[in-house]
Nucleic acid binder design. Structure first.
Length: 455
RNA sequence: GUGAAUGUAGUUCAGUUGGUUAGAAUGCCAGAUUGUGAUUCUGGAGGUCGCGGGUUCGAGUCCCGUCUUUCACCCCA
């Protein structure tokens, strides 16, 4: 018998991990709902044609494809099989794939259900996605995304609210040291225009996105190899090296973008987002205008976001942006604009674990364990148990007659913070010893007092 | 997808130039303790050394393959 194992990059989540994961999920879900987003779920698999072409050439390669059922080779031409070019027969043998993100399935959903959706449409979606990437720390082949998107409005209020939601989620998770980076595709296009890199945008954006990671010299090297002149690179870094406050950076860029309508559009949008934030009385703490932020997903057209938790070895934990033409790729005639972002739960988990940020309360299952010395006291304990549960206190009783030591050990293992040990004295008097397992203190009090104390 | 490193009790790790029966800490189980847990003491269980092949009188140790995890590239939550 072969030892069982899991596919590369996938994991089981035991009860201890699930308690912490759910702490994150609940936090995010609560914030999404508070901002008026409605839940949506879509199938794990989509038609391959829905998925391909949305994530760039590299993205298509990372799609998990599902082999057709039945005799999937039946209709493949012999010539194609003989050439052994697997790419050429992909669409002959596979017509379905696992979803790569939640944004594209959402766009598909919107186009299919236009008649019953009223715009602006705000939905959130918390589901796993799959990528055939090579796993590393913080990179999994199956991971959960928590998306919130608004479609059907150009209002930059949505961008501002995204920032507010990120702040609120991180506050709830007690993550303090982080940066919400924001930029705009218009600004990137403007830079490309100004330095004479038009037509070569993809290479340019991919390279400058790495700036904070690999440094200026490497980016210069890479772009030089791609055919950028020294002169245009000097212009580029003159722009990218802007320092100072958000206002200063924008003023500087305005002088560079006098001839670029795209660049001006980017600046206008960003300025408006910051103005709206001010009207919300939201501080600009943790918000950074990062001119070198690019992001790979090719469908973004306006503002783009990325969130990084500082001092951890995990990449970005959240990202998003505005996309104007996504529904058009599904045949929609109208130009519906959408904007959204996504939290990566698995990475937030890794970061929080690394920083030791999970509160103990998040790992508590039952709040009380009722312990007992004999059958009579156990039966008496059942009434206590019911009374606790009736007022909403999660509690359990040790189901076997075993030594008190074992029962208390069980409580410790499950991180149950309180125990009530019942014996013949308690059955007689009705006074119960509530024990605080962390402090080791206990006091005999009435059931009513217990409920009041720990509810 | 390209290149590299890693794998030894449940967990974290020792293990010499290849040499008898592979160790420690911690955790687990039982007892010291017949109304109270994480301290202390005593005893016990637990490993086909990731898996498969090879070299050798002999392999945890060397070689090849494979899988896992990790790192860089690519890309990204």
């Amino acid at each position: 018998m072969e030892k069982p194992s899991l596919p590369k990059g996938t994991r089981d989540f035991g009860p201890a991990m699930m308690a912490k994961r759910q702490f994150i999920f609940n936090n995010i879900r609560t914030v999404f709902q508070k901002f008026g987003f409605l839940p949506l779920e879509t199938p794990a698999m989509e038609n391959l044609s829905t998925l391909t072409g949305k994530y760039g050439e590299e993205g298509d390669q990372l799609l998990f494809k599902i082999l057709n059922s039945g005799d999937f080779l039946k209709d493949v031409e012999d010539i194609k099989l003989q050439t052994k070019n697997s790419k050429s027969i992909t669409f002959d043998i596979s017509e379905k794939g696992l979803r790569y993100d939640l944004t594209v399935p959402f766009a598909r959903y919107v186009v299919m259900n236009r008649h019953e959706i009223s715009f602006p449409f705000k939905r959130y979606q918390i589901q796993p996605v799959w990528r055939a990437d090579r796993p590393q720390k913080g990179r999994y082949r199956e991971f959960y995304q928590c998306d919130a998107d608004v479609v059907g409005t150009n209002s930059l209020l949505c961008e501002a609210e995204i920032i507010l939601m990120i702040k609120e989620v991180f506050k709830g998770l007690n993550i303090q040291d982080y940066a919400i980076k924001i930029n705009h595709r218009g600004i990137l296009s403007g830079i490309a225009e100004v330095i004479g890199g038009k037509g070569n945008e993809t290479a340019l954006f991919v390279a400058i996105d790495k700036l904070d990671k690999v440094g200026e010299d490497k980016v210069r090297e890479e772009l030089q190899a791609k055919g950028f002149t020294a002169e245009s690179l000097n212009l580029l870094f003159n722009i990218l090296n802007v320092k100072g406050s958000i206002v200063n950076k924008m003023a500087f860029l305005a002088t560079k973008f006098e001839t670029s309508t795209e660049g001006q559009r980017g600046l206008r949008d960003l300025k408006e987002v910051f103005n709206i934030l001010e009207d919300y009385n939201a501080s600009q703490d943790n918000v950074e205008f990062d001119v070198s932020l690019a992001r790979g997903l090719s469908y973004y057209t306006g503002c783009i976001f990325e969130v990084k938790i500082n001092n951890v070895s995990i990449g970005s934990v959240s990202g998003g942006g505005r996309y104007d033409n996504l529904t058009q790729t599904f045949g929609d005639k109208e130009n519906l604009s959408g904007v959204g972002f996504s939290f990566g739960v698995d990475r937030i988990y890794d970061a929080m674990e690394e920083l030791g940020l999970f509160p103990k309360e998040a790992q508590v299952s039952s709040k009380v364990l009722v312990c007992h010395f004999d059958e009579e006291s156990m039966r008496y304990g059942l009434g206590i148990l019911k009374a606790l549960r009736d007022v909403g206190i999660s509690s359990e009783i040790y189901p076997d007659q075993v030594k008190i030591k074992k029962q208390l050990d069980y409580a410790n293992k499950k991180m149950i913070p309180y125990t009530i040990v019942i014996g013949s004295d308690e059955v007689k008097s009705g006074l119960l010893p509530l024990k605080d397992m962390e402090r080791g203190e206990q006091a005999k009090i009435s059931l009513e007092e217990i409920i009041q104390k720990i509810k």
